[in-house]
Design a protein around this nucleic acid. Structure first.
Lengths: 176, 176
DNA sequence: CAGGTCATGTAAAGCGTTACATGATTTT
DNA sequence: AAAATCATGTAACGCTTTACATGACCTG
C-alpha cells in the first residue's frame, strides 16, 4: 500500500495534528512558537493544505464553533497516522535548505572590505536576537522531541555568535 | 537617488558579476561551488533574472561567442555597482530562512520514540556528507569573504555532527 | 468601547525547481 | 564515436508570502 507523499506544509500539519485535535489557527500558533526556526508555515498554506489533506483522507475536520464564532477542528485519520509514520521512518534524502543573507553579504564583502566588520556585527546581532527568542521558549515544559530541537538550535546559534565575536576581534586588529 | 531593490537571485548574480565578466552558465557554476550551501540558484532563475537586471540597467550583456557556440557575457554597470554597494551597506533585517527536515522529524519524534535514534543518525550522516563537501572546497585558494563563510559553514556543520553524536550516545543508554 | 485575540479564508504576486529541448565543443 | 561539458533557454508546476477581508469574542 503506497501512502500519498506529504507536501512540505503537509508534514508540519500532520505532525501537529498527531499531538491532538487542532484548528488551522491553532496550528499556525504552534508553528510560530516552535518549528518556525527551521520549518515555517503561513495561513495561505495552512488552510488550503488542510482541505487538500481532508480530500486525501489524511485528516478529518469537524465544526466546533465557540458561540457564534466559527471553528473547524481537525484530527488525524488512521490513514493520516500511517502517512506520518511513513514519513518519519522513510530514508529519503533529508531536505536541508538555508537562505542566509548575512553569509551572502560576507561572501561578497571583498567588493567593500571596509563594510566587512559591520556585516559581521549585524550578523551577530541578528543571531543574538534569535538566541534570546530561543531562551524564552526554553523556560516552558515540552516533550523530548521539541526539547532536542530547541537544544540544537540554541547550541548552533550560540556557536554562530561566538564565531562572529572571534572574527570581529580578528578584523579589528588586522583590517582585512 | 533610490536604487532598485535586488531580488534574492538578483543579489547573487550582482555579487558574482562584481568579481568579473561572466556568462549565466559561469554564474551557475560558481554558485554551485560556493554559495549554494546558504544561497542557491537555478538556471530557471538565473537567465530570466539576467534579462530583468539588464532592463533595469544594472548589468550589460554582450555576445562573446567561442567559435559557433553562442555565449553572452555580462558585466556590472555603474548602476549595478551602486546597487551592490547599497545592498551590502543596507541595515535591513537580514533574511535567515532554514528548512531542515531532520529537525522537523526530530521535533515530531514523540509520535514514534523508537525511531528517534534513527532520525538522529540520518541527520548526522547528512551533515557529515555536507562537511566532506566543505572540506573539499577548503583546499582551494579564495578571497577573505568566501574563506570566512566557508570557515563558519565548517564550524557549524561540525558542531551539528558533534551534537548528533552526543545525543545518539544519550539515547543508546536511556531509550527516551 | 477600543484594542487585542480568535478564527477563517482568498487573490495576487513572487519565488523557485524540475524537466526538457537544442546544439556546439572538448575530452576520452 | 561516445560521453562529458559548455551554453542558453523555457514551460509547467509547486510552493510560499503578503495583503487584504470579514466578523466574533474578550479584556482593560
Amino acid at each position: 500500500m503506497v501512502s500519498v507523499a506529504l507536501t512540505p506544509t503537509g508534514r508540519v500539519i500532520v505532525g501537529m495534528l498527531a499531538l491532538g485535535k487542532r484548528s488551522g489557527y491553532d496550528i499556525k500558533q504552534m508553528v510560530d512558537n516552535s518549528t518556525r526556526f527551521f520549518w515555517a508555515a503561513s495561513y495561505g498554506q495552512i488552510y488550503p493544505e488542510l482541505r487538500k489533506l481532508e480530500q486525501q483522507g489524511l485528516v478529518r475536520g469537524r465544526p466546533e464553533p465557540s458561540g457564534e464564532r466559527a471553528r473547524t477542528a481537525y484530527e488525524l485519520t488512521p490513514a493520516g497516522e500511517a502517512a506520518l509514520g511513513n514519513w518519519l521512518s522513510s530514508s529519503d534524502e533529508l531536505l536541508d535548505e538555508l537562505r542566509d543573507e548575512a553569509m551572502l553579504k560576507l561572501f561578497f564583502s571583498d567588493a567593500a572590505p571596509a563594510l566587512r566588520i559591520e556585516i559581521v556585527r549585524a550578523m551577530r546581532d541578528r543571531d543574538q536576537r534569535k538566541l534570546d527568542q530561543l531562551r524564552m521558549i526554553e523556560q516552558k515544559s515540552m516533550p523530548v522531541g521539541p526539547r532536542l530541537t530547541l537544544e540544537l538550535g540554541i547550541e548552533l546559534t550560540q556557536r554562530a555568535i561566538d564565531w562572529c565575536d572571534a572574527v570581529e576581534r580578528r578584523l579589528e586588529r588586522s583590517d582585512d
